[in-house]
Each structure stands twice: as structure tokens, then as C-alpha cells.
Design a protein around this nucleic acid. Structure first.
Lengths: 144, 144
DNA sequence: TAATATACTACTAATATCGTAGGAATTGGG
DNA sequence: CCCAATTCCTACGATATTAGTAGTATATTA
């Protein structure tokens, strides 16, 4: 159960956009440099995020990317699902008919519990929350 | 973030052994048939579980496998870790020095939160719990 | 000694991941 | 109108992992 770089990079890129709200479009090049990600790879990730409706693009010179919605309206769970796929994919938790024993399968119950725990965390956090947390981390009050 | 069959099969095999406690060794062949897993593949999984100390093997005729500890003393988390590896592997959650920005990286905080949520679920369940749940599921009281 | 098990090692097909590469299309500014 | 900057699109490839299959060696019981 390891996270793909796709998801990790994608969420970090979204965070960059969230921090840039109100300052116009942000370029791939900039995001890639700040987050230490290959421009070309990030290019593909943004395509996914764009077609899922999380970001908007402005083409041409002075173009770039902006969030399609306000940061407080985008939950981590949404983006996670888009990039990583359904949380904890075990076929039988999604499709009751996948296995004949599903009804009294305790293993299935466990995976469902795990799944719900992960979703609960990711659903409770928006990109605005992450922006706020970043500010707190950078605040002088928190320096040692 | 999908579970490998390795983990799923392994946990189901362990559950079979937990249900068989006190009845002597259980053969690979039997477990494989009941759980619909390839005998040869299960063979390899049991090798892993054995070297991790979760099961003991009895070789030769009338041999098989038994749990190495009482079912109430084996948490799902232990077996999960053994088969699937660390929960939610993101290098930076395990190794603070992996990334220079780790200290104030909010993405890292998120993955830590997710990780802890999963571990909390898996740590709260033992194989004895699963045996009990199975009995409840099979009890006539629960039939419709 | 025969039958039944586990133990061990090697191989393989399929798939996914994590990119790299190259060029086409669009836009803003001089 | 032209050039530079930027997104858009498609194809390719190297690497690793997964989910097995296969064959043989070793141990134990009866």
C-alpha cells in the first residue's frame, strides 16, 4: 500500500496553485522547480487534474494554471481519488457480487473499515486547510 | 493504493489457521481449496509468514501449519506489515532526512495522518476478533 | 518403502509506474 | 506580423512489481 508519485506530486502541485490564488496563472515550469518535479511529467499530471475539473489552464504566453474552484471547496479526497483511484481497492468492497462469500466475509469488513478510516481523514482536509497549515509552519512563532 | 493479493490471501490463510486452533496442523492444500488460492502461491506466502514468526510448520505426512501464537495475540497490523510492507509508504514519513523541506511540509503531515488512521484500525483487530466475527455472521440469529 | 507434506529455487507473463522526447497549437508583446 | 513563452497531445521506454507456474528436494508417518 504505497502512494504513487502521481498522487503526491499532484497534491503538491495543487497546493502551489492554492497558495497562488489571486495572483494570476502559475506556470508548470515554476511549480516543477519549486516542487522538484520533472516539467514533462507534471505536464501529464496537470492534464489529468484539468480533465477532472480541479484546475483551469490559460494557454500561450503569460499563461499557466489556476485552481478551478476555491481552495476551501476542494477536499484532498477528491484529488486523491482522481489521481490514485479509489481508496484501498479491493474489488469486493465495491462490488457485493464479486465474491459469493462477501456477505459474511470478515476480511472484507476489515478492508471496508480501513477504507473508511482513510477517506475520513482525506475528506476532512481541504486545500485551504493546507495553505493555513503552511502559513503556521512558516510563522516566526513556531521557530525554535 | 490497492492491496496486493499477497496481503489479502495471507490474512485469509491466517484466519483459517486461527479457526483451526486446537485441531492440529492444517494443510496448505486445505487452506488453498477453502480460500480459492493457488497451492503453490500460498506455499510462498506461508514461507514469508513462517520466517516472520506468525506460523509454525510441521513437515511430512500429517503435517501442515499452525499459528505460532494465540489468535488474540496477533494483530492484523503485524501481518499486514509483514506482507504488504509499511503502511502508506512515503519515504519522508519514515525518514525525516529524506527531504530538506520535511519539517514544514504539510503534504507529509497528511500522509502521516492517513498512515496513523490505517494503523489504528489494523492495530485494534486481532485474529481472535475475526474468528468471533465469523461465528457471529454464521449464527442463526443473524439470518434474515 | 510408499504416500503425504513442506521447503526451496527458478522462471515468466502481464501490468503499472515514472518518467523522457518531440513537436503541434495558442497567446501576448514588440 | 513575428517571436518567445506556454500549454496540449501522443508515443515510447526502462524498470519494478505482482501473481503466479513449475520442478525438485527434504522430512515424516504409517
Amino acid at each position: 500500500m504505497r502512494l504513487s508519485t502521481r498522487t503526491r506530486y499532484g497534491i503538491r502541485a495543487m497546493l502551489e496553485l492554492a497558495e497562488n490564488v489571486g495572483r494570476g496563472p502559475l506556470q508548470l515550469r515554476i511549480i516543477a522547480r519549486r516542487q522538484d518535479i520533472s516539467v514533462k511529467y507534471l505536464d501529464q499530471l496537470m492534464t489529468i487534474l484539468k480533465s477532472a475539473g480541479f484546475v483551469r489552464s490559460i494557454r500561450g504566453s503569460k499563461g499557466g494554471y489556476v485552481l478551478a474552484r476555491a481552495p476551501e471547496q476542494i477536499k484532498l479526497n477528491d484529488v486523491f481519488n482522481c489521481l490514485e483511484g479509489p481508496v484501498v481497492t479491493v474489488e469486493c468492497t465495491e462490488n457485493e457480487n464479486y465474491c459469493a462469500r462477501a456477505a459474511d466475509c470478515v476480511a472484507r469488513q476489515v478492508w471496508t473499515q480501513v477504507q473508511e478510516a482513510v477517506m475520513a481523514v482525506l475528506q476532512s482536509i481541504t486545500f485551504q486547510d493546507l495553505v493555513d497549515r503552511t502559513k503556521n509552519n512558516k510563522s516566526p512563532d513556531y521557530q525554535i
